[in-house]
């Protein structure tokens, strides 16, 4: 996770017993060099990030770092959770393509939200992920809904 982060995500992971590690953010987004340094120190299972407009700083992760992150995920065997919560709201030029669009190795879980598109009251989102993960999540969702 990044140094300053979406606190709800912090809580969600911490609730599940995750040990959180943090990396810095600069004008080009998440510090990928710090991610690599961390991977060299200890195994990392999952990287959570908001690359389109980083929460809270609004910076966009550069294309170069996106490529680098995908390579690192491959090399150090971690999952990337890409929370693209405001993909639809990009004003200057075209939106940047998600990491998931270059996800050849099936390492990226892509999350989107319709709460901002429709209304905050509709807590509806979506996920693009490998079939086994979708099946597992569907199972959980059934438990939550009933």
């Amino acid at each position: 996770m990044s140094e300053r982060c979406y606190c709800a995500a912090d809580h969600a992971f911490a609730q599940r017993g995750a040990q959180l590690r943090r990396v810095g953010v600069d004008a080009h987004g998440l510090r990928v060099d710090e991610v690599e340094a961390l991977c060299q120190q200890q195994p990392i299972r999952l990287l959570y990030l908001t690359p389109h407009h980083h929460y809270p700083t609004t910076v966009t992760l550069s294309a170069e770092r996106r490529v680098r992150l995908l390579q690192l995920a491959e090399r150090y065997d971690f999952i990337i959770m890409e929370d693209d919560y405001d993909f639809d709201f990009h004003y200057d030029g075209s939106p940047i393509l998600p990491l998931a669009s270059a996800n050849r190795a099936g390492r990226v879980l892509y999350l989107g939200s319709l709460s901002k598109v429709l209304a905050p009251g509709f807590r509806v989102g979506y996920i693009v992920a490998p079939a086994d993960i979708i099946a597992e999540l569907a199972h959980l969702r059934v438990l939550i809904d009933h």
Binding site: H53, P56, T57, T58, H90, D92
Partner: peptide
């Protein structure tokens, strides 16, 4: 601040 290129907030 820097004008954000997208999103719903100014940092």
């Amino acid at each position: 601040f820097e004008e954000p290129t997208g999103g719903m907030a100014v940092w």
